[in-house]
Amino acid sequence: MAVEHYWAPTSLSDALEHLRGGDVTVLAGGTDLMPQTQAGRVSLERGLLNVRRVAELHRIERVDGAVRIGALCTITEIMRDPLVGEHFAMLADACDHFASDQLRNAATIGGNVCNASPAGDTLVPLLVLDAEAELASKPGARVERRRVPLADFFVGPGRTRRAPDELLCAIRLPLPPPGFVGRFFKFGTRPALDIAAISIGIGGVRDGRTLVQARVAYGAVAAVPLRARRTEAALEGAALDAATADGVAATARDEVRPIDDLRASAWYRKELVFNMTRRILHDVAEA
């Protein structure tokens, strides 16, 4: 379908009014949307809504007990942000493995989240960091907002719980508890310009030889970026020794549900999940 309307509002309120009419495609960085439409995998709706000029979506700010990252913040901006660097190093690390410099300069975190690729590079650390998606809509005169835990946000490849009249405004990350350690690992075949064959995020609070409040997530091993609850349970409070690492890694290998595709077979993905989970746990134990 040909695009009939193009809007580039500067306020959130205006943007949401355009969305309310329905049949609208949202454009932010365009790094997923453009190739997808050109390849014919996504067709543009009648209305094209460029949200890039909505300044209030383009901020990183500290709010009580959390950091709010505006949906329009680019991967480069997040990678270099001091607040992110101080509290969410694993997110900055993931940004440093994201595509190429050119793409990082254009791609936004909101786009990465809404594109909902199981292999999306920022999604695994965001899950480990207990992120929430902040959504806004304007059904009537007022802008209404709601928050959805990211672990519940993804429904399937390219599908989320965002309603058609909603815009993702920000990602909200609670400040991690003291003693929090986090690790991110992305496996691709080369250092840059690659889509993850698998990615792993592990976080928790060091308590002596154990890890508590353990959170584990995997990318590219299921229809959605996966928060691995059974693996977390196996890890929670267990002594960080070789036997635990083996057991947790084996649980993870059972819990993930990868497929065969161009990048890797399901079997190999499971092997990587096992080997690298074990390796990361060892690394955390040594830290």
């Binding site: 075949t189 190999y268 080997n275 390796r279």
Partner: peptide, 21 residues
């Protein structure tokens, strides 16, 4: 010699993945 092909060859030949540590 892609990672998966090499890994499979090592695996078949009984070369274990590096033990932790």
């Amino acid at each position: 010699f892609t990672p998966e092909k090499v890994y499979r060859a090592l695996h078949r030949a009984g070369v274990p993945a590096g033990p932790t540590g």
